[in-house]
């Protein structure tokens, strides 16, 4: 039996409201809020990046896991905003945790799916018996070009998962993947912002891959939508996951706890992992959880977890997701936001 031994998250304190962005570009804020089911998003402080969010989330995960960092055999950090083009984020995280030097580390990149890729590899590496514990982390300070629709949703956050075979807070029931080459979103080398295919990001991309992964894992495990207590889909906005969930036969109470986008935005690689963390924050022993990520390019990873008794014992050792999301927020005006996100050109 393998699964999650500990989980932790980090969400920046800063926020910007949709109205504040729309005001600058002369856009209709109510249309964006309704169309994206989004009210505000998190913004990283200038001294926060993917590495710092990953470390702080992983430290919380380690506290819940209660393990010796030297027992971690692998660290995988998924992100589309790694601080360096060449130099791993994973070494920074491993060193900060005290896991070096006997640890395998890799940085992963697959648009918004990179975090769940790390979780997938970590789980199966533990299952193979090669390592005792492995960390899978999804972290991003995602980019949205000024004035682009993505600027309203691209946000920052991280979730980290310590995977192991004992003292589980959630047991892994099964995994399944669904992957094709679909060019719905990309960022070329040296480009500051990604480009996307507009409406093409919907039906042939997000919808096809999420539903493909869901149908495949349901068929593989012979579990029905109504058998799950909770479900989390990737959240590029607040609309797509709700549409998809209802279409596949899930109900609002199943996705209510994991749907964070309306006040968090899209944390890219952190998105569905953060939704899973928020769900673990409320799940009771024995309850079943379905998590399905989505990454443009394109693919989905599906996971089924079952909460264990230990979840209640470690849950309150570190801050819950809703606490990080709802409390002590600091709101920014667009000028401050532009400075924080390095959107203002300054002399070299």
């Amino acid at each position: 039996m393998v699964g999650i031994v500990g989980y932790g998250t980090q969400i920046p304190r800063y926020r910007i409201k949709v109205e504040e962005i729309a005001k600058v570009w002369g856009a209709d804020a109510p249309s964006y809020k309704k169309g994206l089911n989004l009210n505000e998003k998190s913004v990283p402080c200038p001294d926060e990046d993917t590495a710092t969010l990953a470390v702080n989330a992983a430290r919380n995960a380690m506290i819940r896991a209660g393990i010796n960092p030297k027992d971690i055999g692998a660290v995988y950090v998924g992100s589309e905003s790694h601080p360096y083009a060449v130099k791993p984020t994973g070494t920074i995280v491993s060193e900060a945790l005290g896991a070096c030097p006997y640890v395998h580390t890799a940085d992963l990149e697959f648009a918004c799916k990179a975090g769940s890729e790390g979780m997938f590899i970590a789980l199966h590496l533990v299952k193979s018996g090669i390592v005792k514990y492995a960390l899978g982390i999804g972290a991003d300070t995602s980019q949205g070009a000024p004035g682009d629709a993505l600027e309203y949703s691209a946000s920052a956050g991280a979730a980290a998962y310590v995977m192991g075979a004992d003292n589980l807070v959630a047991e892994l029931i099964d995994t399944h993947c669904f992957m094709t080459d679909t060019p719905d979103f990309w960022r070329r080398e040296h480009a500051n912002y990604p480009e996307h295919g507009g409406r093409f990001t919907g039906e042939p991309a997000y919808m096809k891959h999420v539903s493909g992964a869901v149908r495949a894992i349901l068929e593989k495990t012979n579990i029905r939508p109504e058998d799950f207590n909770y479900m989390i889909f990737h959240q590029p906005n607040g609309k797509f996951p709700v549409q998809m969930a209802l279409k596949l036969g899930f109900k609002e109470p199943q996705f209510r706890h994991g749907l964070l986008t309306p006040t968090l935005g899209n944390t890219y690689s952190g998105s569905s992992p953060l939704g899973l963390a928020a769900t673990l924050d409320v799940a009771k022993p024995g309850e079943q959880i379905l998590m399905v990520s989505y990454g443009s390019g394109a693919g989905s990873d599906a996971f089924i977890f079952k909460a264990t008794k230990r979840l209640d014992e470690v849950r309150n050792l570190v801050p819950l997701v809703r606490k990080q999301l709802d409390e002590h927020k600091i709101y920014l005006e667009y000028g401050q936001y532009a400075k924080f996100r390095h959107k203002i050109l300054k002399p070299e």
């Binding site: 001294d47 926060e48 590495a51 710092t52 470390v55 900060a96």
Partner: peptide, 11 residues
């Protein structure tokens, strides 16, 4: 007298 806690940040 404010309570503070150390976090990992970019210097």
């Amino acid at each position: 007298g404010d309570k503070l806690v150390a976090k990992f940040r970019r210097i």
